[in-house]
Design a protein around this nucleic acid. Sequence first.
DNA 1: CTGAAAGCGCTTACAG
DNA 2: CTGAAAGCGCTTACAG
Lengths: 345, 345
Amino acid sequence: MGITSAEIAKLANVSRTTVHRVIYHKPNVKPEVAARVNDIIEQYEYSPNLAGKALVKQNNVDVIGVILPKITNGFYEQVKQGVKSVSKEYQDLGIEIRYEYYEYIEQFSVENQLKAIDNLKMIGVDAIAIVADANERIAEALDSFKPQIPIVSFISDIDCKSKICFIGNELYKSGAVAAELISKMLNDSGNVLLVATSLNMAAQIDRIKGFKEYLSEVSSKLYVNKTTIENYDNEDVAYQELKKFLGENPNIDAIYFSTAYGLAGYAKAMGELKYQKKIRVIASDLIPITRELLGNGMVDFTICQQPFEEGALAIRTCVNYLTKKKKPKMVEILTKNEIFCSQNL
Amino acid sequence: MGITSAEIAKLANVSRTTVHRVIYHKPNVKPEVAARVNDIIEQYEYSPNLAGKALVKQNNVDVIGVILPKITNGFYEQVKQGVKSVSKEYQDLGIEIRYEYYEYIEQFSVENQLKAIDNLKMIGVDAIAIVADANERIAEALDSFKPQIPIVSFISDIDCKSKICFIGNELYKSGAVAAELISKMLNDSGNVLLVATSLNMAAQIDRIKGFKEYLSEVSSKLYVNKTTIENYDNEDVAYQELKKFLGENPNIDAIYFSTAYGLAGYAKAMGELKYQKKIRVIASDLIPITRELLGNGMVDFTICQQPFEEGALAIRTCVNYLTKKKKPKMVEILTKNEIFCSQNL
DNA sequence: CTGAAAGCGCTTACAG
DNA sequence: CTGAAAGCGCTTACAG
């Protein structure tokens, strides 16, 4: 395999300790010696053997704290899988992961997130990957580690001074993809209904914006109904609202669900209505009901962000920073949207 | 981190050497001693530290031979990227990769593949990942290593005794996805044209079969034209044939390209014809021209197999076998088909 | 059947 | 400003 630090040392007529000092820009090396060593390193393309490094690190492993909401839907399960898969890869390489889960309850979740951060502060961690609400107190808590530690926010963004990067989905594009699929299925004309969690949520706003902008760009005969159904991710609300709306509006050609939830309510409503037109449906994410409705044709496509990849990438970013002091090139790393239909599930 | 072999040894009142013998089922351990050691290993969930193992392995690294056709289209570049990304991950863990490329020329490629295998036999490798033609002489060559070495075939399958697994794409499903997209865009009725490399190629046959079967299942008003254009992956042939065919058949609503090639010829032909209908187009794979035509709307969707993932998985499978003697659970690992349109590129 | 010791490549106190 | 030496966890000749 490659050349070793001992060989570099011999070639440069110095000790391995000095080679080490040069590589990591430690003080106390005569500039001319450093230059000589650097030349040889470059010439032989030396890079330290990871197994050797890892072994030494057993004394002092880097620990990464991962903070996640305790939500047992498939989405966060996949995020966790991604995190775990990378942890496993690094488990013997001197990287350890500590998990903190916070209950996500509308009113108290900020408190719970603060508590999770505090727990990690007690344990002592070298970096944090966190899915957090964009809240000032949380940001302050993340900045309050002494010494400062790098923060990677993922899935849902939060700004703080020690943040090195956000990893998430191109939400705007996600809406645009939905619009493209609908325009292709409707042959550029028809009436479209939107179903969202709520019109106040950042993620929903982005998707809907992307949806509307692409739609109006591609055709002037695609009308988005002025009513957007807000279902608060509650299937019963979805059912009630959709039954009422579709009962009164027999001209809908397509529906875009910008949230993973509401499909069960939709299926129930459609089962009770005798709707004349074929309704095309675009869903978001992939949970069991989505799979089922894709299978029976009630949903045409679903657009997925990549929870596994985002979880994995968050940890990788922490590891790269801890082991190579390498910040990611971009402050925002956005994953692509995947399209699923019945045949590529 | 976890417990070490030295600690296990102390707990069992034996040496590390004996612990090692027990773990790897080496001979010369008194059964009762082995039992005692095994109990403790289980109790403490001991598993050997990879960094430690890797360091020792520096003396005797495992080398994996990778045999690929020397084709410089984007597809095999991506396969290579996948292979490289995994190699990098393992480079300091005692796994080395040797590449062999063979010229792919209709007549002599079997000879070239045999030569590539022979080269690896000279060098001496511990496993082979190969993209090969399903040819008996090649199979024999792969089986002729002494001692036998594990073979992973990928992208294109070949049967031989020492093969542990094939990694490739769900080609049949790829055609089914194309059919689903077309049926949704045409609202279940219309005339469809097929463009393939050649009707003799296994991969093309699978895709077309999946396409036709899904189409006929979903609607009886979707007609596949009895002519399938064979373009031999030559853009000029595609251009000539499509210009002629579309000139004489003004009723085509959609085209499915079951090959990555022919889109440039199609674009040229359409530029010269004044075709009345909007033609929906489904492409395969993602090469620069595909990207371009997705952008300008001449292509609606493209269906991609996952060359990067398949390359990566092939190497991972070899590594798992070499380091843990672990065969993959399935003899056939098939990757999903990805759908791309202009907005999720 | 068993174990002491060397060595893989690295980093880190420590001594000078 | 520099280097000798110990030790991270493992495997492998070697000796008994």
